[in-house]
């Protein structure tokens, strides 16, 4: 039984309210997405666009090793970033949820989110300063005497991209895991202890399975924007750390080949969608198997 509203024409009122945001999304999201899809089937003919539908761009994107390499690298880097970020974030979320007193939790969450709200560009740039040949990390390590030569594997390559993005997306991973941990009824843990399990087994058999939805959310939230990141690979990635977004930008703004850029964007979107769907599917299966 539903009891809601003031009785009259709830549907009309709901539609009136949803219309502005829905129309906005339609005009500025649906139309552009359709357009970019259409563009990917057209081709650039010097300064004009040839509107005859063709699969030329897709053939090129899939056969040209440069594109394939960029796409593969983007997926691998985004995967590495996601894994690193989530693995590093879980203990923090667990600590705040289980070991921080209730009245201090929002302070901790606040502290974790603050760095995230400071200029992304400047943060990425500062990682370049930290990881550089004469950077903060190298000069500190040399000063302390741990190393003699500056480490070179930490800047202008994929490692630097992973470290920087793991930093940039940390709160995105911590928050959903924290929320799912907070939802766990603490008496379940006591029940597990009461039934004879120790701390470790209680964690493995109760806490971790119940935190899975949060981990899945964190994985998606980190993976999706990471695969399309532009700034970090450009600033700290060097030639070996460039990703698909950099190529899309190059096609659009440097080579003036919008159709090719559109094709790469569509491919990137397709990859994101497929991976997201696989994850959601696995999560469903997991939840179903447990219920």
């Amino acid at each position: 039984m539903k009891l809601k509203g003031f009785g009259t024409s709830d549907t009309a009122r709901g539609l009136t309210l949803i219309a502005p945001p829905a129309l906005f999304a339609l005009l500025l999201l649906a139309v552009p997405l359709v357009a970019i899809f259409a563009f990917s089937f057209w081709s650039q003919d010097f300064l004009t666009i040839d509107y005859t539908p063709t699969l030329k761009n897709y053939r090129e994107a899939l056969s040209e090793p440069l594109y394939g390499q960029l796409i593969l690298r983007s997926v691998l880097i985004a995967g590495a970033v996601t894994l690193t970020t989530v693995v590093l974030a879980f203990p923090i979320a667990y600590f705040v949820s289980f070991h921080v007193p209730a009245n201090r939790k929002s302070l901790w969450i606040f502290m974790i989110t603050i760095p995230f709200w400071t200029s992304y560009l400047i943060r990425v740039f500062l990682w370049k300063v930290i990881l550089g040949y004469n950077g903060v990390l190298n000069s500190t390590l040399i000063g302390v005497g741990i190393i003699d030569e500056p480490l070179t594997f930490i800047l202008y390559n994929a490692n630097a991209v992973v470290i920087t993005l793991a930093h940039a997306f940390a709160p995105f991973a911590i928050l959903p895991i924290f929320v799912s941990l907070e939802k766990i009824d603490r008496s379940l843990l006591e029940a597990s202890r009461d039934l004879g399990e120790n701390h470790v087994m209680t964690f493995l058999r109760v806490t971790l399975p119940l935190a899975v939805p949060g981990v899945v959310a964190a994985t998606l939230i980190v993976f999706i924007p990471t695969i399309g990141d532009y700034v970090t690979p450009r600033l700290v990635g060097g030639p070996g750390g460039l990703m698909i977004a950099n190529m899309i930008q190059t096609q659009f703004l440097k080579l003036n080949n919008a159709p090719m850029g559109a094709t790469l964007a569509v491919i990137a979107m397709a990859i994101v969608t497929v991976i997201a769907l696989v994850f959601i599917f696995l999560n469903r299966r997991w939840l179903k198997a447990r219920s």
Binding site: M1, L3, G5, F6, G7, T8
Partner: peptide, 17 residues
Amino acid sequence: SGCGKTTLLRTIAGFED
């Protein structure tokens, strides 16, 4: 619960048509 008593009351109040 579910017998319609609240619906009847809300009908009198004017919250339900």
